[in-house]
Amino acid sequence: MSDNHGTDVSVAEHGDTPEFPLPPHHHRITDTDPKAAKRAERQVAAMFGLSALCTIGFVVAYVAIPTDTFIALGPIGIVQLSNLVLGLTFGLAILLIGLGAIQWAKKLMADEEIIGERHPLGSPKEDQDAALAEFQTGLAESGFVERKIVRRTLIGALALFPIPLIVVLKDMGPLPVDSLNHTIWRKGSRIVVDVTGKPLRPEDLAIGTLVSASPEDLDKIQELEGNQNARAKASIILVRMRPSDIKSQQSPEGQTWDYQGILAFSKICTHVGCPIALYQQRQHSLLCPCHQSTFDLADGGKVIFGPAARHMPQLPITIDSEGYLVAQSDFQEPVGPSFWERG
């Protein structure tokens, strides 16, 4: 028993014979009947032959079928014909090679199990000793142990050298500064419907409706200047409910942030930032499709279900001199998911 066999549990060790021998080998029909063997041979050849035909079929289909032909295919639905035929021919060409090879192995190749011995995996003891001795010699020749100052400065240098590799990563992106705290909403920014860009008047919104909206200025920002970034924070939803249904708002004492029952909230979930637009009108609740955080818009946007920890930020709104809905100011708190510096 070698050294690495620590516990004395009885188990077959190297060189033991098994208590039960390998059962006798049974011949297959293809081993005993030449006819059966011949049949198996024909099966294998047929599969390989069919595979070759399928490959030719693939090339024909590639040339013959344009990508813009679609066909209805029963329960599968409408499919791109090119994709279907190319896939079927190519798939069968490959599959038949595999099936042929396996059939060949199973029916015709020798199927008698062979017993091989396992050998101890580790190096023999004398090799271990020799290796250690070599290492010792090398170590002594290098002077790594005695020359402390060399060793220590080397360790220090090696510990420091990755710093530039990390420092250079600093310019992967700008520092956050306070960019997450603001959106492009300003005092007087008109609220426009996000698909049409049309500014909204209070009378455009019936009680019970929800509209996705954005600031008018958004379209003026070019894409390269961060239109998407601005959109990702400034999107809002407008809902209108009976003023008597509103239980609370986020506005401080003495201010109103709604306009005649029209409330504006950030569209970006305070959990991990999915845009929200599923509105259950009767309960005035807003549901995030990603993780089901649910917010009560009639009660200051507070969380009533799901993993979000904070209410949906409310945007203070009013109307301008021409009667269009506008923001009173930017959001009074950062929108979207929490972050360390949020406070």
């Binding site: 060790e13 098994p18 490959i94 599959l95 099936l99 090879a101 396996i102 192995a105 091989g116 011995e117």
Partner: peptide, 29 residues
């Protein structure tokens, strides 16, 4: 016939070449 110190089965060439190689084509197909 199987113990902790032996390995009982089929040889890499030809049986496993055909079976495992064939199985690659089956999975791909």
């Amino acid at each position: 016939g199987r113990t902790n110190t032996n390995v009982v089965g089929y040889p890499l060439f030809p049986v496993y070449t055909a079976k495992a190689g064939g199985f690659f084509f089956v999975v791909f197909g």
